[in-house]
């Protein structure tokens, strides 16, 4: 009897992930139709399948599709990286940029913008700096004996604030008429400028990270226990942690490189995902991806259609994320008391 109910629960979780997947597809299709030139979901599907008139093709395939794909990849990526980082650092209040990836990528992008490099170069440079910051944090962290996680968080803070100061300095010396606004706009986070070309740059690192994290998902559960417990269960914690941090970093750096800093997604979506599927990473990782993608597509719809001028998406995610986070803190404290 007990066996059957527990088995039923497992099925139930798979079913929930399936529902999340269906919601994601529906939201994505509907969103392709939303905008200044509205198209019904049926026409959208027809257009995607090769039908539709020239105008519909241009709007859906050339303008909106890259953006929806970007929102999907970035939302899924940030949420997955966030879920992973929370498990690695055994702390549900950690976000994917805990090791300074976002600020460093922002710094890399700012330099490129200052030097007037191409959009592609901005993306590539942001990516390189994002990855480099974590390599730096890791290299310093390797000198820590014993408990590694707390030290990494502190070093991450230090490195992050250094890059942040660097970005401020670049803003100070940037031409206030055209370059400074470009830097500020990038740092606010936006999917407005996403092109297929950008997506090509991040496609491979993102694919590698998605695959790696989903493959090691079950072992991440054990990494979320204490260091001693994980080791007594035969897990090579340093190796697994390196792999998972590496993959999360590739993911975060890719996301920031394309979209600028979009905060909060990687922090709050993992919470919602765990609420749906429970803590087991085998289920919470795919749930985070689907939830993150759906969430970012919806927020981006608001960002591009709410006002005539576009609202940077990073501002919106903060408006949604910050109050939700407060709610989580208050609720969790009440639970403990």
């Amino acid at each position: 009897m007990t066996k059957r109910t527990t088995w039923g629960k497992t099925m139930n979780r798979r079913l929930r992930i399936l529902v999340l997947a269906i919601v994601f597809v529906v939201v994505a299709v509907v969103s392709l139709g939303i905008g200044r030139y509205p198209i019904s979901p049926i026409r959208v599907v027809q257009t995607l399948l090769g039908g539709g008139n020239a105008q519909e093709k241009a709007v859906v395939l050339k303008i909106r599709l890259p953006r929806i794909i970007a929102a999907t990849l970035i939302g899924a990526g940030l949420a997955l990286a966030g879920q992973t980082m929370q498990m690695i650092f055994r702390n549900p209040l950690v976000s994917p940029d805990v090791l300074g990836t976002s600020t460093a990528a922002g710094f890399g992008a700012s330099i490129s913008l200052l030097l007037g490099m191409s959009t592609l170069a901005v993306t590539v440079n942001a990516f390189i700096f994002g990855v480099a910051s974590v390599v730096l944090v890791w290299a310093i962290g390797a000198r820590i004996k014993g408990e590694q996680t707390m030290g990494l968080i502190l070093i991450g803070m230090v490195v992050s604030s250094l890059f942040s100061a660097g970005t401020s300095f670049i803003k100070l010396i940037a031409d206030p008429n055209n370059i400074l606004p470009a830097i500020t706009y990038f740092l606010m986070g936006s999917l407005a400028g996403c092109s297929f070309q950008d997506l090509q740059v991040i496609a491979i690192p993102m694919a590698i990270s998605f695959a790696t994290l989903l493959l090691v998902s079950w072992k991440l559960n054990i990494l979320s226990l204490s260091e001693d417990e994980a080791r007594s269960l035969g897990v090579n914690t340093r190796l697994l942690r390196s792999v998972a941090i590496g993959a999360s970093t590739l993911m975060t750096a890719s996301a920031v490189a394309v979209s600028g800093q979009i905060g909060w997604v990687g922090l709050i979506v993992p919470h919602m995902a765990r609420r749906i599927t429970g803590s087991n990473a085998t289920y919470s990782l795919p749930a985070s991806m689907l939830f993150g993608a759906t969430f970012l597509i919806i927020v981006d719809n608001v960002s591009r259609t709410a006002t005539t001028a576009e609202i940077p998406i990073g501002i919106l995610t903060a408006f949604i994320g910050a109050p939700f986070f407060l709610y989580l803190i208050l609720k969790e404290n009440r639970h403990e008391a």
Binding site: R90, P92, S224, S226, E229, G278, N280
Partner: peptide, 11 residues
């Protein structure tokens, strides 16, 4: 067992 996450007994 120290974990910040609520695993089920079976997990």
């Amino acid at each position: 067992s120290q974990t910040a996450f609520a695993y089920t007994v079976k997990e």
